[in-house]
């Protein structure tokens, strides 16, 4: 049941790790506000952006994700006080490293989305697929079997 993956009619699949307290709640707000965005991203709820291991991100690419998003509380507003500060360092290093490996940076993004930013959630969910659509399906790091 995956998103259509034919090259000519390509719809990117995006795995979005959203922290429970801010970004997931921001997604809920986008819903309750009846905002509209394309269905490319599927959200995996995590307690905090600091829970997102690079292993999960690589696993998503391996299993066929065309893009991965990590969304957390704005720096300074972490529900767990400092989690997103750790995430910011970890994921900055990972993003540059994936770029070094040849993965286009557009395919791995981190955004800070607060519980009150339903609009921003919808915006990110709209813009990220657009950018990835332009790049085409991801074959890098993908399990070819």
């Amino acid at each position: 049941m995956s998103v259509a993956r034919e090259e000519h009619n390509f719809e990117p699949l995006i795995v979005a790790f959203c922290c429970n307290w801010c970004s997931y709640a921001g997604g809920d707000l986008a819903g309750t506000s009846r905002m509209s965005y394309p269905p490319n991203a599927r959200v995996i709820r995590v307690p905090c952006s600091s829970r997102v291991s690079p292993n999960f991100i690589l696993r998503a690419f391996q299993r066929g994700a065309d893009g991965v998003l990590v969304a957390g509380c704005h720096p300074g507003d972490c529900h767990y006080i400092t989690g997103n500060y750790h995430a910011r360092r970890r994921l900055s290093i990972l993003r540059r490293f994936l770029g070094f490996m040849g993965v286009e940076p557009e395919r791995f993004e981190v955004h800070w989305i607060s519980a009150s930013e339903g609009g921003k959630f919808a915006e990110v969910m709209t813009e990220m697929p657009e950018k990835i659509r332009a790049l085409g399906p991801n074959r890098k790091l993908r399990d070819a079997r």
Partner: peptide
């Protein structure tokens, strides 16, 4: 919140 309220197309929303 993450599906029926934000997607308009029934087929897409159902698939998601």
């Amino acid at each position: 919140e993450h599906c029926s309220w934000v997607h308009k197309d029934e087929e897409e929303a159902t698939r998601k």
